[in-house]
Amino acid sequence: MFGRQFFIDPSRCIGCEACVNACAECDNHRGESMIHLDFIDRRQTIATVPSVCMHCDDPTCAQVCPADAIKKTEDGVVQSSLKPRCISCSNCVLACPFGIPKVMVRQEQMMKCDMCYDRTSVGKKPMCATVCPSQALSYVPLEEILKGRREKPTNVFFFGKQKVTTKVYMMVPQTMDAVSVDVVDYMWEEQA
């Protein structure tokens, strides 16, 4: 939006949790952090991974929502559930291939990263991608990323023959075009 895109590069992440803290400063959900930050296995490694909503072109969470509570804006940002509609059933939590939505017990609704819609819809950068000291999360023009980084961006993911394309990009090795996590995606199967 406004010429900039969101890029995630987990390999840059230092686990500082600036994003976690800054997310709670978004005016849309001040006091609650939506971003996920995982220490993969602190016993083995210092590696950490941040996950924001990928803002899928055809969001699985919205597909499975029985209450039709999850809406995407015209500029492609998938919003938290509409409070009057959400029945806190957790379908979206289970269905999202990236594990993003959370059912918030106190608020009695699904909430998730909305790409700081209060900020990005008026041309500002999202909180987390602004503060991130390693720029594991960055919000910059696509050309800048293509020019400056070792890795390259992709927004095509396969989850066992489910192809998901997203607004948010993931940084991957130069030799890779899409991310596939399921062996099935690498198999040759005769069509039945």
Binding site: C16, E17, A18, V20, K125, T130, V131, C132, P133
Partner: peptide, 10 residues
């Protein structure tokens, strides 16, 4: 350029 660690955020 806008970056902060969690101490700066809080």
């Amino acid at each position: 350029e806008g970056k902060l660690c969690p101490k700066g955020v809080k």
